[in-house]
């Protein structure tokens, strides 16, 4: 341990700094997980949403169904959120 600390201090970082970096890395990883999946979900919902609006304009009765179809890709961002939460809290 003493060797490790001396090695670390040799490259200019203390143990606290390394711990802080690790927490930062976790936070970054969580951010990447949530942002990329959110983007993917939004992209998927964009296509479904515009089709849904078109379909509703043709026939108002399908509103409930298309609203549901629009949230189907939300699974993607939910998986992202779960990963992010697990990264940060566990």
């Amino acid at each position: 341990m003493a060797d490790l600390v001396s090695n670390v201090t040799a490259v200019g970082m203390s143990v606290e700094a390394i711990k802080a970096t690790q927490i930062g890395m976790k936070a970054l990883a969580a951010a990447i997980a949530i942002s990329t999946t959110a983007f993917a979900a939004a992209w998927a919902e964009m296509a479904i949403g515009s089709a849904a609006v078109g379909a509703t304009a043709e026939n108002k009765d399908v509103f409930g169904l298309v609203l549901l179809l629009t949230v189907i890709p939300e699974t993607i961002v939910i998986f992202g959120l779960v990963v992010a939460l697990l990264l940060i809290f566990s």
């Binding site: 939300e74 699974t75 939910i78 998986f79 959120l81 779960v82 939460l85």
Partner: peptide, 13 residues
């Protein structure tokens, strides 16, 4: 099975 994690995720948000 993992899809049910939305019960938690949506609630947490």
């Amino acid at each position: 099975s993992l899809s049910y994690s939305r019960l938690v995720a949506v609630g947490l948000s």
